[in-house]
């Protein structure tokens, strides 16, 4: 595949997206899900490329080492993810064996063309960045990454220079930065204001909404896509609320489970491009993708959702 330069969406990507959407209507049975509906997409602001609003994270869940049983389980999760219309998978060199496990899954699934590969550079030495990126690429077994992000702003100035050069050379399609759980937001904003970013990745959920004040509006203003990590606070949020019944109004926005309720809140924010919940269970990945089906809450409903969860 020849390298592509600049912005825009290739035919292969458009077809892959369409294939993903088509697959979305064929997802396997999961109780209470609106299966006939396509998975909703948001466009990447810098290119106009559509991306399903629910992706797949790999923090902890895909770090299973050489355990072949667990590797196969991860591959099954990926299979269900692609079958349900998913595209974006995110990882990092920090996540232990998650990268080779993703590569194993991609091999097993015959390299699904709809994959949108997102990884990170995470090393204090800027000079060692390209070698780490190459190692990550080899683990995934992809020709090149779609998106590379500077993990937790580690040595971000130098790494962004590297990533911007890779993008200019057509060796990378999108550039981003990440943070999690509200860390270094002031510096994060400064980078958003001063560097040409395609994506930012951050933590946002129904209880952690600090980013609504500055970062999400700034992303909209500057045309930067937003990937949301830790949408369930590593599962704690779902555990905290699942003892309570879903509110009656959950049915109005097509939520059959708490996980969908929490995900719909996140992806309904107009600045959010996609959320990337991580899971080891096939039924959960289907449930997560189904959150990107059917109606999304409007501003009034979002306020109602927040009030309800905060009252629990």
């Amino acid at each position: 595949m020849p390298p592509r330069k600049g912005k825009g969406c290739s035919r292969r990507e458009a077809l892959a997206g369409a294939a993903g959407l088509a697959a979305g209507s064929l997802i396997g049975a999961a109780p209470g899900l609106a299966q006939e509906l396509p998975v909703a997409t948001r466009t990447i602001p810098s290119s106009g490329e559509p991306v399903p609003m629910v992706g797949l994270g790999s923090w902890i869940t895909f770090n299973v080492g050489d355990d072949i049983v667990l590797r196969d389980e991860c591959a099954e999760v990926m299979e269900a993810f692609f079958a349900a219309g998913g595209r974006l998978i995110d990882s990092s060199p920090m996540y232990g064996s998650a990268q080779p496990v993703i590569g194993y899954g991609l091999d097993k699934l015959g390299r699904p063309p709809q994959l949108l590969s997102a990884d990170k550079v995470w090393i204090s030495s800027v000079d060692s960045g390209p070698a780490q990126i190459e190692e990550s690429r080899a683990h995934w077994g992809v020709e090149r990454f779609d998106l590379l992000q500077v993990h937790n702003l580690v040595s971000w100035e130098g790494h962004l220079d590297t990533l911007e050069a890779m993008k200019a050379d057509g060796r990378l399609r999108y550039v981003g930065i990440t943070t999690s759980e509200g860390r270094r937001h002031r510096e994060f904003v400064e980078v958003m204001r001063t560097r040409p970013l395609d994506f930012v990745q951050l933590t946002y959920n129904i209880l952690d909404r600090e980013v609504e004040e500055t970062i999400l509006p700034l992303a909209q203003e500057r045309g930067i896509g937003v990937i949301v990590n830790r949408p369930f606070r590593q599962g704690d949020l779902v555990q905290e609320v699942e003892d309570y019944p879903l509110p009656d109004f959950a049915g109005e926005i097509g939520c059959a489970t708490w996980a969908q309720f929490l995900l719909k809140f996140i992806i309904s924010h107009p600045a959010v491009t996609c959320a990337i919940p991580a899971t080891t269970k096939v039924e959960h990945v289907r449930e997560n993708l189904a959150a990107a089906q059917g109606p999304l809450p409007d501003a009034t409903m979002r306020a109602r959702m927040v009030a309800h969860v905060e009252d629990l």
């Binding site: 902890i60 080492g65 355990d67 996540y95 232990g96």
Partner: peptide
Amino acid sequence: SDFLLFSPRTYVRL
């Protein structure tokens, strides 16, 4: 928990 890179199940299986 921020320093835990793997799940308890993965660790015990290891």
